[in-house]
Each structure stands twice: as C-alpha cells, then as structure tokens.
Amino acid sequence: MAKALTTKAVEAAKPDPAKRYEVPDPALSGLYLVVQSSGVKSWALRYRFGGKPAKLTLAGR
C-alpha cells in the first residue's frame, strides 16, 4: 500500500502564485490536498454517486 500524505508533506506544500493545484493522497483513492494560490489549503474528495462524479470539499484556512 502506498504511503499517505504526512503532516510534514502537507505543511511543506507551497502555493503557486499562478494557479491552484491538487496533490493526490496515494493511500486514499479520491482524496486530494488542494493548495490555492493564496496559500490556503483544503481537502477535497472525489467520488461517484448515482453513477455521476461528485466532489466534496472541506474548507481550509
């Protein structure tokens, strides 16, 4: 099994001033760390419901 994103890896993720980006968690399919250009970090979960793709975002600070 792949290793999950660690606290150290999340803290080390630096913002890209040009765009937001996502870092997938290799241990949990569909879980992503979202890093905004402002530096705000949040978590997103991509999943399927009723055969349609959906996304749940947990807001960051």
Rank of each mutant, 00 (worst) to 15 (best):
M1V: 12
M1E: 13
M1Q: 11
M1H: 07
A2Y: 00
A2P: 15
A2N: 05
K3T: 03
K3N: 07
K3Q: 10
A4S: 06
T6E: 04
T7D: 06
T7P: 01
K8V: 08
A9K: 14
A9C: 06
A9F: 03
V10E: 00
E11V: 06
E11Y: 00
A12D: 04
A12R: 11
A13T: 08
A13G: 08
A13L: 06
P15D: 08
D16R: 14
P17G: 06
P17K: 10
P17L: 07
K19I: 09
K19S: 15
Y21A: 11
E22G: 08
V23Q: 02
V23L: 07
P24V: 05
P24L: 04
P26K: 04
P26W: 00
P26V: 02
A27K: 03
L28V: 04
L28Q: 02
S29V: 05
G30P: 03
G30V: 04
G30M: 06
L31Y: 05
L31W: 03
Y32E: 06
L33V: 09
L33D: 05
V34F: 00
V34L: 05
V34N: 02
V34Q: 04
V35M: 05
Q36S: 15
S37R: 12
S37Y: 12
S38A: 14
S38D: 14
G39M: 07
V40P: 01
K41V: 00
K41W: 02
S42T: 04
S42H: 08
L45K: 10
L45Y: 14
L45P: 05
R46S: 11
R46Q: 12
R46G: 02
R46E: 13
Y47G: 07
Y47W: 10
Y47H: 15
Y47A: 06
R48W: 13
F49L: 13
F49A: 12
F49V: 09
G50E: 14
P53G: 12
P53A: 11
A54R: 14
A54T: 07
A54H: 15
K55S: 12
L56R: 13
T57F: 06
T57S: 15
T57Q: 11
L58N: 05
A59H: 13
G60K: 03
G60N: 04
G60I: 07
R61K: 13
